[in-house]
Simulated scan of single mutants.
Amino acid sequence: MARHQGPTRAKPLVRKLAKDLGVDLTAISGSGRSGDVTRDDVLAAANGLTAANPTPPTGGDDRVPVRGVQRAMAEAMVLSAFTAPHVTVWVEVDMSRTQDLVRRLREHPSYRDLRVTPFTIVSSALIASACQHPRINASWSEGADGPDVIVHRDIHLGMAADTPRGLLVPVVRGAGAMTLLELARAQQALIETARLGRSTPADLVGGTVTLTNIGVFGVDGGTPIINPGQSAILAMGRIVDKPWAVDGEVRVRPVMQLSLSFDHRVCDGAQGSRALTSVATFLADPAAALLLNQPA
Rank of each mutant, 00 (worst) to 15 (best):
H4A: 13
Q5A: 13
Q5N: 11
G6L: 12
T8A: 15
R9T: 10
K11R: 13
P12D: 11
P12I: 05
R15Q: 15
K16N: 12
A18S: 09
D20V: 09
L21S: 12
L21W: 14
V23K: 11
L25W: 06
T26E: 15
I28C: 08
S31F: 10
G32N: 08
R33E: 15
V37P: 03
V37G: 04
V37Y: 10
D41R: 07
D41W: 01
V42N: 08
L43K: 09
A44Y: 03
A45M: 08
A45G: 11
N47I: 10
N53V: 13
P54E: 06
T55S: 13
P57N: 10
T58M: 10
R63V: 15
V64Q: 12
P65V: 11
P65Y: 11
V69W: 08
Q70A: 13
S80Y: 07
A81V: 10
T83Q: 09
V87M: 09
V89G: 05
V91I: 12
D94G: 06
S96D: 08
L101M: 12
L101N: 04
V102Y: 01
E107N: 11
S110H: 12
S110A: 15
R112M: 08
P118L: 00
V122W: 00
S123D: 02
S123W: 00
S124V: 00
I127L: 00
H133F: 04
I136K: 01
I136R: 00
W140N: 09
S141W: 15
S141I: 15
E142R: 15
A144F: 11
A144L: 15
G146A: 14
P147N: 13
P147T: 12
V151N: 07
D154K: 10
G158A: 10
T163S: 04
T163Q: 05
P164K: 06
R165S: 09
L168R: 02
L168V: 09
L168I: 02
L168K: 02
V169Q: 02
V171T: 06
V172E: 01
A175H: 03
L183Q: 01
L183M: 06
A184M: 01
A184I: 01
A186I: 00
A189I: 10
I191T: 03
E192I: 04
L196Q: 14
S199R: 02
T200V: 07
A202R: 10
A202Y: 05
D203V: 02
L204S: 03
L204T: 03
G206S: 07
G207R: 00
V209R: 05
L211R: 03
N213M: 04
N213T: 11
V216N: 05
V216Y: 06
V216K: 10
F217C: 08
D220C: 05
G221H: 13
G222R: 07
T223E: 05
I225Y: 06
I226T: 08
G229I: 01
L234W: 02
A235N: 05
R238V: 04
V240A: 14
V240T: 15
K242W: 06
K242Y: 08
W244N: 04
V246A: 11
V246C: 08
D247K: 07
G248F: 09
E249Q: 11
R253E: 07
L260G: 00
S261K: 06
H264Y: 07
G269T: 11
S273N: 10
S278F: 03
S278P: 07
A280V: 02
A280N: 04
T281F: 05
F282E: 02
P286W: 00
A287Q: 14
A289G: 08
A296G: 13
